[in-house]
């Protein structure tokens, strides 16, 4: 156990950016979970006498223009942002990934299935041709403004990514010998896809998941910023930035800056975690990483020579 811990520490030393990513993501998640314990004030109650207070000991991040504590709201915000982003991303991976697996499996040969695969891929082209943000706003406008709609919008704009990713994976895995063998052994197409193809295609999808959660948070905030997402007074980074940004020109920078910084750091953290998963999921990159760790141990464990 302790040797595993030592390896983890060593990996953190040779790849500090990965360690930073995990620290950020874990810290933000813990903050969101324990928000009621950590925060000194309610995130939605306004203290009407002390509005636009600059940061000080009583209000760590200051107060906004209606007198709500920005520190408390910033800590509560990831509860909404993370939930929406994670749900939307999982939904898009589930829908895009499973359709992509089937499309990839049937994308060559003859018959109606090939034409269906072709049609699905062209539909994905059309979906991706729209600017993501415009597409998301259009969805919110047509389905009505609610948290479910934002989740759905994230799922929709990301689904083609998983569709393509899964399809390209399946195209290469489909020609693996164990896939052919499973058909020789009498498995149906669906049994083959579920049992042999999807599990072997998951690695890059997992890497994409983390990156997409970061993007999902950005999209949620952006929609809320323009008023199409989560509405105030629900604590949410995008709407907080929007509430405070008129005050920035008059010198009260804190209502926008703190939630903005939290948002940036969180997205950064998820991107780093995604990059690390990509390395860990790729056997050759993982070997490189582990050999770097061994090299580091060899160097640091050597007795120091000379004085």
């Amino acid at each position: 156990m302790s040797s595993k811990l030592r390896l983890l520490v060593r990996l953190a030393i040779i790849r500090p950016r990965f360690a930073i990513g995990y620290v950020i993501v874990i810290a933000i998640t813990l903050l969101a979970i324990f928000a009621p314990v950590i925060t000194p004030y309610s995130p939605t109650e306004a203290d009407s006498v002390s509005f636009l207070q600059p940061p000080d000991a009583t209000h760590l991040f200051g107060t906004d223009n209606v007198g709500m504590d920005i520190f408390s709201r910033s800590i509560y915000a990831p509860r909404i942002d993370l939930t929406i982003a994670i749900l939307g991303t999982l939904l898009s991976a589930l829908a895009g990934g499973s359709v992509g697996a089937v499309v990839g499996f049937y994308s060559s040969g003859r018959g109606i299935r090939v034409w269906l695969s072709f049609a699905v891929m062209r539909a994905a082209d059309v979906l991706q041709a729209f600017p993501v943000f415009v597409f998301a706003i259009a969805l919110v406008a047509s389905l009505g403004q609610s948290i479910q709609t934002v989740v759905l919008a994230i799922a929709f704009v990301n689904a083609p990514i998983y569709l393509r990713l899964m399809r390209s994976q399946v195209l290469s895995i489909r020609s693996m010998r164990y896939v052919e063998a499973s058909q020789v052994n009498g498995l149906s197409d669906m049994q083959t896809i579920v049992r042999h193809i999807i599990p072997n295609a998951m690695a890059p999808v997992l890497a994409q998941l983390s990156v997409n959660v970061g993007w999902g948070i950005l999209l949620t905030s952006a929609l809320s910023f323009v008023g199409a997402g989560v509405r105030a007074p629900t604590p949410e980074w995008g709407s907080m930035i929007a509430m405070g940004f008129q005050n920035v020109v008059t010198g009260q920078w804190w209502p926008s800056m703190f939630p903005g910084a939290m948002l940036a750091i969180t997205v950064f953290g998820f991107s780093l975690v995604g990059a690390s998963i990509e390395v860990l999921a790729d056997p050759s990159k993982r070997r490189q990483l582990l050999s770097d760790a061994r090299e580091h141990r060899r160097r640091t464990d050597l007795p120091v020579e000379g004085a």
Binding site: A181, V184, G186, L187, R195
Partner: peptide, 23 residues
């Protein structure tokens, strides 16, 4: 499909490539 692997089966070369690496 009910015949393949049940009444008629094939033993293949390159056995390690014929097995799903994750199961």
């Amino acid at each position: 499909r009910r015949l393949r692997g049940r009444r008629l089966s094939v033993v293949v070369p390159n056995p390690r490539a014929e097995l799903n690496p994750l199961l």
